[in-house]
Design a protein around this nucleic acid. Structure first.
Lengths: 325, 325
DNA sequence: TCGGCACCTGGGAGCGCTCCCAGACTCGCT
DNA sequence: AGCGAGTCTGGGAGCGCTCCCAGGTGCCGA
């Protein structure tokens, strides 16, 4: 390669790394040689010689099975990739199981990657903290429940839920329930607290809460049945995830409640299924792709040693009004 | 590391690579030192010295955006990861755009990864062929329309569709339509041809075909409307994807057709939405996770130089009978 | 004229492994 | 005793880069 361009290895290296102090002639010669030879620098050698891996890991905690099918994860992945494209940084995908956690920490702290993005659905996961302690740059998607110093990016679940609650109040609903997510997930609690605030603002009771332990249609259905048995007169329900709202809609249909006339339904996430539901679901939109982009942007900033990065970020949500409320 | 174990670098290397000709004493000493030091071998150095990258790429062609949200992709990813776990092989995720194809070929052929798994939704993609020509081991998920020598793994779309057609015939349907996928995707054509065979077997006409150019609910809805206008008397429809079946169901409901009494509906894929649809959808199940596992298994086999690998594989499908047919 | 500086270039060292060769030691056989 | 085959070990070379130092050149101001 160096021979083909008629320069030294050093000069080739300088051109590739866009360093200063290279003459235009040398630069052109190298570029031409790159094209002629279809040359692509050996990443392993670069990693070994420099001490930078030119790669970041996207770590998915919990059994990958559940997480991967989640549209949330897909969106994040899309955003991460979009932000990475153009930079010479590879994305390595890793999934953790319970038992190999120590291996994972060893691997990630061992210089194989420059930094870690982590999507941690249940907030108690100790991995982010361990990695941060080991000095690995890390950004978490979704607010972790433990670990203070860790940089995270999340959607503004609290205000999204608050906005949904206000909307239901503003449209005249008098008996508003909520189907909340699991108590050990920040996303579940934040949305519940937003709804509570909305109820409090309006002077309405916030007793009609049903928790589902999982974000699934069946979980939503069970919670909806519970709510209806406790309060047959309820006229609105804020469901903390579209996927649970599907189950809630099924139960409401089965009990012949008209939507939105008898019961208004608001979801959260704005998945594709929200717009194809019957009736199309009014929901709080979160931009998960932007979440992925922002996480990546934060991590790359850390790696570049940028100062004054915000410790954490919340991304705005917006209410999408369709037919169900 | 070698010093800590009291042996030479060579011996450490032999232990790590599980080579023969190491005494039990030396092996134990090395293992102990690994634990004590939390040692994790430097991948870059291994890659550089051996000439094996210890990584495979999962390449997603087309704009990643569409593909990533696809449950198909998520399932494959899950399977790939499951099959990889335990082996010391990293998974690198890449997405291609139109313009950087040459870069991608250069990168993938440049020894940065040992092999390539590719999920190519539209079958005309030239990338698999180029990579195969460049001598890169490659396995494609989903039958490619071009490129003969390329190893692929796919669900048995033809027989799945055939089984669906036979089932509709066997349950007494007399006027059976189909909503087919795009003509430039193997998955679309294979399912259509399976349905055709089923019609031919039963001596029924196979004229009621509507193509959708995209696998979306709206595409399915438009096709359903087309079919109903051409043949108001139709009493069954085989929809080549659950996601399109959602749209078809919407149209049928809107026209007050009872399902399954007036019109039987059979989908394909068995996504989660199939079981939560109204009514729950009878559909042809394909095991996409198994698809991912099998792809990986084939690629690793190629890399290990195993002989007699089948050129390609079809995975069985099965009819899941629910309420819609 | 001479130093000083900014610009540009080449070559040595070394990143942490794997591969390969040379050798040591132990058998069991002739 | 002698020999070869099988078992085990260490060290040299080298993978393809980056980093750093030692120069070279040209131009400016003193």
């Amino acid at each position: 390669m160096a021979r083909a361009a008629g320069v030294s290895r050093s000069t080739v290296s300088r051109v590739i790394n866009e360093e200063p102090y290279v003459s235009a002639k040398a630069r052109d010669a190298v570029h031409q040689a790159i094209l002629d030879l279809g040359y692509s620098p050996n990443q392993a050698a670069r990693t070994l010689a420099g001490n930078r891996a030119n790669a970041i890991a996207l770590v998915v905690s919990e059994q990958g099975s559940r997480v991967l099918s989640d549209p949330f994860f897909a969106g994040v992945l899309r955003g991460v990739h979009a932000e990475l494209s153009g930079r010479r940084v590879q994305l390595v995908l890793m999934m953790t199981q319970q038992d190999d956690e120590q291996d994972i920490v060893g691997y990630l702290a061992g210089g194989h990657v420059d930094g870690v993005l982590m999507v941690s659905l249940h907030g108690q996961d100790p991995l982010p903290l361990k990695l941060a302690d080991a000095g690995v740059p890390i950004v978490v998607g979704g607010r972790p429940l433990v670990g203070d110093g860790i940089q995270y990016v999340d959607s503004d679940n609290f205000n999204g839920a608050l906005e949904a609650a206000r909307y239901l109040v503003a449209t005249g609903r008098r008996r508003i329930a909520t189907i909340a997510g699991p108590k050990d997930m920040a996303v579940g609690m934040d949305r519940l607290n937003g709804w509570r605030r909305g109820m409090a603002e309006a002077g309405q009771p916030s007793d009609l809460v049903a928790h589902s332990t999982v974000f699934t249609p069946d979980g939503g259905a069970a919670a909806m049945e519970d709510l209806l048995s406790r309060e047959p007169e309820l006229d609105a329900v804020f469901v903390a995830a579209d996927i649970m709202a599907m189950g809630a809609l099924r139960v409401l249909h089965a009990q012949n409640r008209r939507i939105p006339r008898d019961v208004a339904v608001v979801g959260f996430d704005d998945l594709m299924i929200a717009s194809t539901a019957l009736p199309p679901l009014t929901t709080v939109r979160q931009d998960v792709e932007q979440l992925g982009r922002t996480m990546t942007w934060c991590l790359l900033g850390q790696l570049d040693g940028e100062e004054g990065l915000p410790p954490s970020l919340l991304l705005p949500t917006s209410l999408v009004i369709r037919a169900s409320a």
